[in-house]
């Protein structure tokens, strides 16, 4: 069981939390023109990361606040916890943020780079 540090309540077991998937995914503006393909990318495509990932968690059975976490999916080590409205501040967090294909058009990138560690 993961031990997660809620920014408001401190360290708690993961049974108190709710997983919210990958963080920093930009929601497309529905009032603008958007192809089905582009929209489906937002809706359905998820990275299956081996290594560092930025993800959202909610302290469901505690303060009910959402926050972001930098986690290593191999070791489950949590390297950074930061507010949901901000970007990571650690070096590894920044690198992980920059590496995400969602911040570049995925159609312009080869799938290989998605898996970069």
């Amino acid at each position: 069981m993961l031990h997660i540090e809620c920014p408001w309540c401190g360290f708690r077991d993961d049974a108190e939390f709710h997983y919210g998937g990958e963080a920093h995914i930009t929601r497309p503006d529905p009032s603008k023109t958007l192809t089905d393909e582009k929209f489906s990318e937002y809706l359905f495509l998820k990275t299956n990361t081996k290594g560092l990932i930025l993800e959202r968690w909610c302290h469901r059975s505690g303060c009910r606040r959402w926050f972001n976490v930098l986690r290593n999916t191999i070791t489950n080590e949590i390297l950074e916890v930061y507010p949901v409205t901000e970007t990571p501040s650690s070096k590894q967090g920044k690198e992980t943020y920059d590496r995400n294909w969602r911040r570049i058009s995925p159609s312009k990138k080869t799938p290989k780079t998605d898996e970069a560690k």
């Binding site: 709710h18 919210g20 929601r27 959202r56 909610c58 469901r60 009910r64 606040r65 959402w66 949901v84």
Partner: peptide, 10 residues
């Protein structure tokens, strides 16, 4: 939880 998620994160 759904409402909180949108309110806090989006």
């Amino acid at each position: 939880e759904w409402l909180e998620e949108w309110l806090q994160t989006e």
